[in-house]
């Protein structure tokens, strides 16, 4: 068994879990300023207060698993992307403490609304810059290589994408005028997301030889063709469900997540087997076997348990979020 591949898969799953779960949590922060009433904003924060920490922990899981399996890549990527990573961490502080202080404040609600949204937006933009830079082959340590038109585009895409997931989450967790408002926001964001995905795809095909070769030649074109086709179908379906208030309110979130999954597969397909494109492949960065096996035992045994009680957590708090639930 090739441990490099196993770990690549694990990290990919960890990152995907993070993007989907904290994606909708950050997304709620992104769209919160567009909610109409102060009570709506409070409900938006409340709908996440029991799970933001779990969702954010996937970021730590992804980071630590990268550290376990590919220590060279971990140290390379993190020092190359120093400033955007620090910005992300500080932004996550603003976001995280908003949950803790929001419902204990009387006069400073407006500030915690700001802290929640500002933190969510800045964290997402930083992640988008990091993503864009990695896709393009990393940066020189100490240079501002992470600030390019392409990375700004990926930052915008991620902002709209998380916002889409966040508004779909609110469709699921809220009622009445707030749910309707969330549907309107989600539709607007969907248009933006699809536009961005299109531009990013074309940009990558035009500028990156490896990506173009994989996607535009036989057999890659046949293997990968379902990805954009499915994207189209999911987009259409999501648009319809967002317009149908009587339908299952979990479907928009599910479809939004499928859209993310497809984009993610599309990205990884273009980058593999590089962990930092053009710089480092997964085999060059691999940790010694005893490290990999010891950590893998823990992951294989414990991750299913983790997923199990996370599902339990969602079930305990299932249903619409209402203000009266609290401490």
């Amino acid at each position: 068994m090739d441990l490099a591949l196993v770990y690549l898969l694990l990290i990919a799953c960890g990152v995907l879990m993070y993007v989907l779960l904290d994606g909708f949590s950050l997304g709620v922060g992104i769209v919160a300023p567009w909610l109409e009433r102060d009570e709506d904003k409070a409900i938006a924060v409340k709908s996440l207060s029991h799970l933001w920490d779990s969702n954010q922990t996937w970021l730590v899981f992804g980071g630590v698993t990268l550290f376990v399996a590919f220590p060279k890549a971990y140290s390379l990527v993190l020092s190359q992307l120093y400033l955007p990573i620090i910005l992300m961490l500080i932004a996550l502080i603003f976001r995280g403490v908003a949950f803790e202080f929001y419902f204990k404040s009387d006069t400073s609600r407006w500030w915690w609304n700001f802290s929640f949204s500002f933190g969510s937006i800045l964290a997402t933009l930083s992640q988008g810059l990091i993503l864009g830079t990695l896709v393009q082959g990393g940066a020189e340590v100490g240079r501002l290589d992470w600030l390019t038109p392409f990375s700004l585009l990926t930052a915008l895409s991620l902002l709209l994408g998380y916002g889409l997931l966040g508004s779909c989450w609110l469709v699921r967790k809220t009622e009445g005028s707030m749910a309707r408002r969330s549907r309107t926001i989600a539709r607007a964001l969907l248009i933006g997301v699809v536009t961005c995905l299109g531009i990013v795809s074309v940009w990558m095909l035009l500028t990156q030889a490896q990506v173009a070769e994989r996607w535009l030649t036989v057999p890659g074109i046949f293997i990968l063709a379902p990805v954009p086709l499915l994207c189209g179908w999911v987009t259409r379906s999501l648009w319809q469900r967002l317009g149908d208030e009587t339908g299952n309110d979990l479907h928009p979130l599910g479809l939004g997540m499928v859209l993310f999954l497809l984009s993610f597969i599309g990205l990884v397909a273009g980058m593999f087997p590089y962990i930092v494109p053009g710089q480092l492949t997964i085999w060059q960065a691999l940790a010694p076997e005893s490290t990999l096996i010891f950590a893998l035992v823990g992951i294989v045994v414990l991750l299913p348990v983790v997923i199990g009680y996370n599902i339990y957590n969602y079930r305990v708090f299932a249903g619409k979020t209402r203000m009266e639930d609290g401490y």
Partner: peptide, 28 residues
């Protein structure tokens, strides 16, 4: 990293997720 990182990995899996998962139930 090869020596210390798995210890952090076990910390995430046995502690961080555990605390986060049950803190929500404990508080709310």
């Amino acid at each position: 990293g090869p020596v210390l990182s798995p210890l952090l990995s076990y910390e995430v899996l046995t502690a961080f997720f555990l605390e986060a998962g049950f803190l929500g139930i404990m508080l709310f």
